[in-house]
Design a protein around this nucleic acid. Structure first.
Length: 128
DNA sequence: CTCCTGACATACA
DNA sequence: ATGTATGCCAGGA
Protein backbone atom coordinates (compact mmCIF):
# COMPACT_ATOMS: atom_id res chain seq x y z
CA UNK A 1 0.00 0.00 0.00
CA UNK A 2 0.99 3.47 -0.50
CA UNK A 3 2.31 4.85 2.71
CA UNK A 4 0.11 7.87 2.47
CA UNK A 5 -3.05 5.93 1.97
CA UNK A 6 -5.61 6.16 4.67
CA UNK A 7 -6.64 2.84 6.10
CA UNK A 8 -10.21 3.66 5.35
CA UNK A 9 -12.39 6.56 4.31
CA UNK A 10 -11.35 6.69 0.69
CA UNK A 11 -14.31 8.92 0.25
CA UNK A 12 -17.17 9.15 2.66
CA UNK A 13 -20.16 8.47 0.51
CA UNK A 14 -22.52 10.01 2.98
CA UNK A 15 -22.29 11.71 6.31
CA UNK A 16 -21.31 9.71 9.33
CA UNK A 17 -24.80 10.33 10.49
CA UNK A 18 -26.06 8.04 7.78
CA UNK A 19 -23.58 5.32 8.65
CA UNK A 20 -24.62 5.55 12.25
CA UNK A 21 -28.20 4.97 11.26
CA UNK A 22 -27.29 2.02 9.10
CA UNK A 23 -25.24 0.62 11.96
CA UNK A 24 -28.19 0.71 14.29
CA UNK A 25 -30.68 -0.56 11.76
CA UNK A 26 -28.31 -3.36 10.94
CA UNK A 27 -28.30 -4.26 14.62
CA UNK A 28 -32.01 -4.76 14.68
CA UNK A 29 -32.59 -8.38 15.64
CA UNK A 30 -34.76 -10.54 13.47
CA UNK A 31 -38.41 -10.39 14.36
CA UNK A 32 -38.08 -6.89 15.80
CA UNK A 33 -38.77 -3.40 14.54
CA UNK A 34 -37.74 0.07 15.57
CA UNK A 35 -38.94 3.58 14.94
CA UNK A 36 -37.28 6.63 13.45
CA UNK A 37 -37.58 8.44 16.72
CA UNK A 38 -35.79 5.74 18.66
CA UNK A 39 -32.99 5.59 16.14
CA UNK A 40 -32.64 9.34 16.12
CA UNK A 41 -32.73 9.35 19.88
CA UNK A 42 -29.94 6.79 20.09
CA UNK A 43 -27.98 9.02 17.77
CA UNK A 44 -28.57 11.93 20.05
CA UNK A 45 -30.78 13.75 17.60
CA UNK A 46 -34.37 12.97 18.24
CA UNK A 47 -35.25 16.07 16.25
CA UNK A 48 -33.50 14.66 13.24
CA UNK A 49 -35.90 11.81 12.92
CA UNK A 50 -36.31 13.00 9.36
CA UNK A 51 -32.67 12.49 8.62
CA UNK A 52 -33.02 8.91 9.76
CA UNK A 53 -35.52 8.38 7.01
CA UNK A 54 -33.15 10.02 4.55
CA UNK A 55 -30.41 7.70 5.65
CA UNK A 56 -32.67 4.79 4.91
CA UNK A 57 -33.42 6.27 1.54
CA UNK A 58 -29.72 6.22 0.79
CA UNK A 59 -29.60 2.70 2.13
CA UNK A 60 -31.58 1.51 -0.85
CA UNK A 61 -28.36 -0.05 -2.08
CA UNK A 62 -27.34 -1.24 1.34
CA UNK A 63 -28.04 -4.43 3.27
CA UNK A 64 -30.24 -2.47 5.60
CA UNK A 65 -33.53 -4.02 6.64
CA UNK A 66 -35.50 -0.85 6.09
CA UNK A 67 -38.62 -2.87 6.47
CA UNK A 68 -37.77 -3.19 10.14
CA UNK A 69 -37.93 0.55 10.50
CA UNK A 70 -41.38 1.88 11.02
CA UNK A 71 -42.88 5.15 12.07
CA UNK A 72 -44.44 5.88 15.42
CA UNK A 73 -47.68 4.35 14.29
CA UNK A 74 -45.98 1.11 13.44
CA UNK A 75 -46.86 1.65 9.82
CA UNK A 76 -44.43 0.62 7.11
CA UNK A 77 -43.36 4.01 5.89
CA UNK A 78 -40.48 2.95 3.69
CA UNK A 79 -42.66 0.34 2.10
CA UNK A 80 -43.69 2.92 -0.44
CA UNK A 81 -40.15 3.24 -1.69
CA UNK A 82 -39.76 -0.47 -1.80
CA UNK A 83 -42.29 -0.83 -4.50
CA UNK A 84 -45.14 -2.14 -2.44
CA UNK A 85 -46.24 -2.26 1.17
CA UNK A 86 -47.28 -5.85 0.70
CA UNK A 87 -43.71 -6.76 -0.12
CA UNK A 88 -42.65 -5.60 3.27
CA UNK A 89 -45.50 -7.22 5.08
CA UNK A 90 -44.52 -10.53 3.60
CA UNK A 91 -40.94 -9.83 4.50
CA UNK A 92 -41.71 -8.93 8.10
CA UNK A 93 -44.17 -11.75 8.31
CA UNK A 94 -41.37 -14.09 7.34
CA UNK A 95 -39.41 -12.78 10.30
CA UNK A 96 -42.19 -13.60 12.70
CA UNK A 97 -43.67 -10.14 12.91
CA UNK A 98 -47.41 -9.75 13.04
CA UNK A 99 -49.66 -6.97 11.88
CA UNK A 100 -52.93 -5.54 13.02
CA UNK A 101 -56.08 -4.68 11.11
CA UNK A 102 -54.54 -1.48 9.90
CA UNK A 103 -51.52 -3.27 8.50
CA UNK A 104 -49.31 -1.82 11.20
CA UNK A 105 -46.63 -3.76 13.00
CA UNK A 106 -47.48 -4.84 16.52
CA UNK A 107 -44.81 -2.67 18.05
CA UNK A 108 -45.98 -3.66 21.48
CA UNK A 109 -44.75 -7.14 20.65
CA UNK A 110 -41.85 -6.43 18.34
CA UNK A 111 -40.65 -2.98 19.24
CA UNK A 112 -36.89 -3.01 19.69
CA UNK A 113 -35.01 -0.16 21.29
CA UNK A 114 -31.46 0.52 20.07
CA UNK A 115 -28.69 0.46 22.67
CA UNK A 116 -28.03 3.85 24.16
CA UNK A 117 -31.46 5.24 23.62
CA UNK A 118 -32.66 3.75 26.85
CA UNK A 119 -29.98 5.51 28.83
CA UNK A 120 -30.71 8.87 27.34
CA UNK A 121 -34.30 8.82 28.27
CA UNK A 122 -35.79 8.40 31.71
CA UNK A 123 -34.64 11.86 32.57
CA UNK A 124 -38.02 13.33 33.15
CA UNK A 125 -39.10 10.82 35.73
CA UNK A 126 -35.87 10.93 37.63
CA UNK A 127 -36.56 14.32 39.01
CA UNK A 128 -38.87 12.83 41.49
C1' DC B 1 -27.26 30.15 -6.10
C1' DT B 2 -31.89 29.88 -3.71
C1' DC B 3 -36.19 27.69 -2.35
C1' DC B 4 -38.78 23.63 -1.32
C1' DT B 5 -39.45 19.20 -0.35
C1' DG B 6 -38.62 14.96 2.12
C1' DA B 7 -39.71 7.67 4.43
C1' DC B 8 -40.85 12.00 11.17
C1' DA B 9 -41.21 13.89 15.82
C1' DT B 10 -41.92 17.30 19.25
C1' DA B 11 -43.63 21.71 21.09
C1' DC B 12 -46.70 25.22 21.39
C1' DA B 13 -51.31 27.73 20.56
C1' DA C 1 -57.50 17.25 22.43
C1' DT C 2 -56.51 19.00 17.70
C1' DG C 3 -53.95 21.68 14.53
C1' DT C 4 -50.16 24.41 13.13
C1' DA C 5 -45.40 25.46 13.14
C1' DT C 6 -40.72 24.33 13.67
C1' DG C 7 -36.33 21.51 13.72
C1' DC C 8 -32.86 18.40 11.62
C1' DC C 9 -29.73 17.94 7.01
C1' DA C 10 -29.41 17.06 2.46
C1' DG C 11 -30.81 16.61 -2.32
C1' DG C 12 -33.51 18.12 -6.34
C1' DA C 13 -35.63 21.70 -9.38
Amino acid sequence: MTSSAEPETPAEPESDFYRRVWGIVAEIPCGCVTTYGHIAESLGARRSARMVGWALNASSAMPIPCHRVVNRFGGLSGSIHFGGPYVMQDLLCSEGISFDEHGCVLMAEHLWIPPGAEEEKSKEEVSM
